[in-house]
């Protein structure tokens, strides 16, 4: 199979899986869900890292790669930390 077709299959199945999982998240947790999933979307950092490693050195492309790593890391670190901060606050009656 063409890698592209395999990728499409993966993409569609992952969307179906995502819809399935997210539908079960209660409205109380919608904000942490957004920031948490947002942190996950910082996975672009993997792409940024792979892309900033290259044989053909073209200055502008490397600058873009550098910036990509900066933004993606911001996304990952900021997302996880802020989500953790929010979830820390959600307390049950019993835990008091």
């Amino acid at each position: 199979m063409d890698p592209f077709v395999i990728n499409i299959v993966i993409f569609v199945l992952a969307i179906a899986l995502g819809v399935e999982v997210i539908t079960k998240v209660p409205s109380t947790l919608h904000t942490p869900l957004m920031s948490g999933s947002n942190a996950i979307s910082g996975i672009t950092i993997v792409g940024a890292l792979l892309a900033s490693f290259s044989e053909t050195f073209f200055a502008f492309g490397v600058v873009l790669g550098f910036l990509a790593v900066v933004f993606a890391t911001f996304n990952v670190v900021g997302g996880y930390v802020v989500t953790n901060r929010m979830l820390e606050m959600f307390k049950s009656k019993d835990s008091k």
Binding site: F11, L17, G18, V19, I22, M34, S41, G47
Partner: peptide
């Protein structure tokens, strides 16, 4: 979805799967 598209560019399944998960989460919300 943008992350998933970047995954298609790099032929990287990690980006495609996670991008799709996040894309789906946003759509549901």
């Amino acid at each position: 979805i943008a992350a998933a598209m970047a995954g298609f560019v790099l032929d990287n399944s990690a980006l495609i799967i996670t991008g799709a998960l996040v894309g789906a989460s946003g759509i549901v919300l």
